[in-house]
Amino acid sequence: MISMNAGPIYSQIAQRIKDDIVSGKLHEEEQVMSTNQYASFYQINPATTAKGFEQLEEEGILYMKPGIGMFVSRNARDKVLAERRQQFFAKIVDPMIEEAYKIGMPLKEIIARLEQQEGAKDS
């Protein structure tokens, strides 16, 4: 859910829509709920939702069909995936390595684990 303890609400909304695009809950060229529907669903101010939409529009994830509403852009999923991939090392891998150093875990062990995972996925 949307939390008052997790920073700006509009970026949480934007994040949520991106999640839905990545997971396939929202398809490209599909209409998204209106700002009012979003506001109602999450019990937040519609202006806040609109700001989240605005951000996604700027990023080219959503686009406006005048008089109809907001739609998911044609290549929105690729864009979000590219962004997430870009952030992957900074947000997930680097902290992991840092933590490994802290607790004295050799990187070799992590690599072994990763290879094992890959093997398991392949089979």
Binding site: I2, I9, Y42, N45, T48
Partner: peptide
């Protein structure tokens, strides 16, 4: 504020 803050613009 915790309850209603999210409604405030």
């Amino acid at each position: 504020i915790e309850e209603v803050g999210r409604l405030f613009e």
